[in-house]
């Protein structure tokens, strides 16, 4: 995972509540065995017309003015539904570094943080302000400081957002969590010695 300490980028808004992972990446794209190339499948069924290839001119991500956007502003409860980590892979493949919403589904948030895609929780007023700004001016950009946990709006207002300390450490240092767990091997062994296994799948 790459280090992530600051993001400065323009925003694009999809002001839709409850955007589920089937919209972020439909299941038919999950027949892959790697993470590459999923960006083109992001929001596929909203992004393309019925032939699956022609860009839908009404969909905001196809608007030429928003092609450089790296921060997605979404409706409430973003990322609900399935556990597919293909969702953050697809969003990152499509160029996003952060998603802003009032709330994120638990599994999506976990998956995003493990890949360096920053889920930013803001209050309803800030979300609505960002929706308006994005619509009025596609060049609207925001700044994110991971260390300070602040999102700075174009008017200079800095909004705090929550981020657990461990995820923050991992983002700032570009380390993933597997290394931490591997280093706990002795503790895990002691746990196993104290607790008999419940089932033996190989039996």
């Amino acid at each position: 995972m790459d280090k992530l300490s600051h993001i400065e980028g323009s925003i694009v808004a999809i002001p839709v509540n409850d955007i589920d992972t089937d919209q972020i990446i439909p299941a038919r794209f999950l027949k892959v065995t790697d993470k590459a190339g999923l960006g083109k499948a992001a929001f596929c069924d909203w992004r393309y017309l019925e032939d699956g290839e022609t860009p839908n001119p009404k969909f905001i991500l196809n608007n030429a003015a928003y092609q450089e956007a790296s921060v997605l502003v979404a409706g409430d409860n973003f990322g609900c539904g399935s556990s597919r980590e293909h969702a953050p892979w697809a969003l990152m493949g499509a160029g996003f570094k952060a998603v802003i919403s009032t709330d994120f589904a638990d599994i999506f948030r976990n998956n995003a943080l493990k890949n360096g895609l920053l889920p930013i929780i803001v209050d309803r007023d800030t979300q609505q302000q960002l929706f308006s700004l994005a619509e009025e001016d596609p060049s609207t950009s925001v700044r994110v400081d991971v260390e300070a946990q602040t999102l700075t709006l174009p008017d200079g207002r800095a909004v705090d957002f929550p981020l657990d300390g461990f995820s923050k450490y991992c983002l700032l240092n570009g380390v993933d969590q597997l290394g931490y767990l591997l280093a706990l091997d002795e503790e895990t062994q002691r746990f196993e010695a104290r607790n008999p296994q419940r089932v033996v799948t190989t039996a």
Binding site: S83, I107, N110, N111, D164, D176, L178, Y180, L181, L184
Partner: peptide, 22 residues
């Protein structure tokens, strides 16, 4: 509970997961 693919890797390699208490 359901987990993502990174966490599938964590469990395969360590049989443990990092979890904030719900």
């Amino acid at each position: 509970f359901g987990i993502g693919t990174s966490e599938v890797g964590h469990v395969l390699a360590t049989q443990t997961l990092l979890q904030n208490k719900p």
